[in-house]
Simulated assay, not measured.
Amino acid sequence: MGDDVVLSFHDSLLRVSDVHLLSGPYWLNDNIIGFAFEFIENVLCKDCSGIFSFISPQVTQFIKLVNEPGELDAFLEPLSLSTKKFVALAVNDSESRSDVGGSHWSLLVLDVDSGVFRHYDSSSQHNHDAARLLARQLARYMRIVSDRFVEEEMPQQRNGYDCGVYAIAVAEELCKSEMHIGDVGSANLASITPSYVESCRQRLRKLISELHDEKIHTPN
């Protein structure tokens, strides 16, 4: 089977090697996180589709390191970010503009109306500098004059490879909280335990398998 394509879902493409990362103990790459964001926005929390905008890891990396704000227009104008309530981005500590790579993931969420950036890091603010840079870049593009940056308290990972799963889990909890009670601040982040993170990996693998089978058995 090699490294064949397993699933094409909205703007994400997953191969065998990507899905294998979910079996653990492996660090998740940008393809898996991009898929998870697509699923959260378009399926899991579709009722919040006009509220949340999830930016792919590849575009997030470009935003973080771009030199000229005008370069962002082609990527971000179609997303109409100013019309959303929240913008969510997976932060990576890589300093390469052409390759996400890196060694750690965290989640940055912009409250568009207030201009507040909230950073959720499962490894003791490891990504603080990268997230702060990203926030400044996005604030400049969106003309947010007095942006504020807050490091949010959240459960901490106990290994060196689950950061991406934590970022996905937090994104899910924030969306569900907004969808059900209209307040992301009430999200139950304490529920994101090591066992929950492991179950999240398993759920993602099962989900990809089900979507793969569904596409195979659905007539064009």
Rank of each mutant, 00 (worst) to 15 (best):
M1D: 14
V6T: 11
V6P: 04
V6Y: 05
V6I: 11
L7G: 11
H10W: 04
L14W: 04
H20N: 15
H20W: 12
L21N: 00
Y26Q: 14
A36Y: 01
E41G: 02
D47G: 07
C48R: 02
S49Y: 08
S49V: 06
S49R: 06
F52K: 07
F52G: 04
F52D: 01
S53A: 06
S56I: 05
P57H: 04
Q58Y: 12
Q58F: 00
Q61H: 10
Q61A: 03
K64N: 02
K64P: 00
E71V: 11
E71N: 06
L72P: 08
A74F: 14
F75R: 11
P78I: 08
K85G: 14
L89F: 11
A90K: 06
R97A: 03
S98I: 13
D99R: 14
D99V: 12
G102R: 00
D111R: 01
V112A: 09
D113C: 15
V116A: 15
H119G: 06
S122L: 04
S123G: 05
S124K: 12
H126F: 15
D129E: 12
D129G: 11
A130S: 10
R132W: 11
A135Q: 08
Q137F: 07
R143W: 01
R148W: 12
V150W: 11
E152L: 10
N159P: 01
N159Y: 11
N159D: 07
G160C: 13
D162R: 00
V165S: 10
A169T: 03
A171Q: 02
L174Y: 09
L174Q: 13
C175V: 11
K176E: 15
V184G: 03
G185Y: 02
L189I: 07
L189Y: 08
P194W: 06
R201H: 03
Q202M: 11
R205W: 05
S209Y: 15
E214N: 11
E214T: 13
K215W: 03
I216S: 00
H217W: 10
T218M: 13
T218L: 14
T218W: 02
